[in-house]
Simulated assay, not measured.
Amino acid sequence: MFDFRQLRYFVTVAEELSFTRAAQRLYISQPPLSQQIQALENDLGVRLLERNKRNVSLTEPGKLFLEQARQILDKAEEARAQMADAATGFSGKLRLAYTVSVTFHPALPQTLLRYRSFAPQVRLMLCEMYTEQQYAALVAGELDVGFVRDEPEHPGMARQLRLDVIDREPLLLALPANHPLAGRDSIWLREVAMEAFIVQPRELAATLYDRLAQIAAKANFHPLIRQHAQQINGLLVLVAAGMGLALVPASMRSVNLPGVKYLELEDPDAYMLLALASRIDDPNPVVRRFLSAMTEPE
């Protein structure tokens, strides 16, 4: 069976129509070039070139085989380039998840835009997923990278994962625009200890739920939960309706819902983590390239 070297030799001779010039172009002597062309013809069982002392020309089968040889070599080069890209993380696929609250944070669109310009051949597979579900999927090998809002709860899981912190996003108190305290710029949570709060169910948003409980505990009260909302933007709708107050990430300001005012919280613990999570031992070059590109300063 012929090999790529014989194909390259044949294409070069066909382009030069001279064994002498082809040998010079290939940096080999003429006898081994002639031997390889003859071996190729013997393998195919057809004469590809007519040659005499003065001229070399393609036979009809030779013209047809020239087209095929060029296509085979082009495909081989394409495959070589694709494998090189895959090995260096510039092609393949990346399974990436993010929590619903991250859709309001500029880090998500900025990261996706930057990465798509950096590695346009990588196929991004995106999905929404809560933080704890992301950690379970990462450990199970069902996810490559996740935008998460908290550290893993279980030490065994934490040892398998890498966290690259993007932001410690401040938490704000959302309250109705007609609330007596709405004219303030900031507030201590203890000042609304007697107010009703609106939260997402803990099984959906444990990070935000627990952070409210922690900050309230520092202020020596237990928050009165009056209402639940499945989605984080649903909290704001209920706040605007006067159903209570809500703790939300600062990026939720972008929702700009009429009837809602945001106040900064006077508490150093009033923040939510935003980080990229991945497996420590992940050998996938696409993941390594993504993390390297996205965590390095621009």
Rank of each mutant, 00 (worst) to 15 (best):
P106W: 08
K93G: 10
Q110H: 14
H228S: 05
G244F: 08
A87Y: 09
R159S: 15
D144G: 03
E15G: 09
L66F: 13
P170V: 13
E153P: 02
G92I: 12
A158V: 07
E128M: 12
V102R: 00
W188Y: 14
Y271H: 10
P32F: 08
G92H: 01
S91C: 06
L265M: 06
V192E: 14
R289E: 03
A87V: 09
L257I: 05
A206G: 07
F104P: 01
L265K: 04
S292K: 11
V165K: 07
V100G: 09
A97L: 02
A206Y: 12
L171I: 00
I280R: 15
T12G: 00
C127A: 10
K63A: 04
N42F: 06
T131G: 06
W188F: 10
P180K: 14
R226G: 15
T103Y: 07
R51G: 02
H228Y: 14
G62T: 01
D144V: 00
L263M: 08
T207A: 14
E203C: 06
A193L: 00
R95H: 14
P285H: 00
Q38R: 12
Q231E: 14
L173K: 12
M294R: 01
V260H: 04
F197I: 07
P249Y: 11
H154Y: 09
Q121Y: 04
K53P: 05
A229Y: 12
D43H: 10
F65N: 04
D281C: 05
N220H: 13
R5K: 11
D43Q: 06
V148M: 04
L17I: 06
L247T: 07
A23H: 01
D269E: 15
V237L: 11
A136D: 15
L7N: 04
L263Q: 09
L7I: 01
V100T: 12
R5V: 10
A196C: 06
A240Y: 10
M272N: 12
M272C: 12
E203S: 10
Q68W: 09
L245C: 09
E296M: 02
L171K: 11
Q160L: 13
L48K: 05
Q134L: 10
A240H: 12
Q200R: 15
E50K: 09
R162E: 14
T12V: 04
G156Y: 09
E41D: 00
Q231V: 06
N233A: 04
V11K: 01
A137C: 08
R54H: 14
L48C: 01
V260D: 03
I187W: 12
S57V: 00
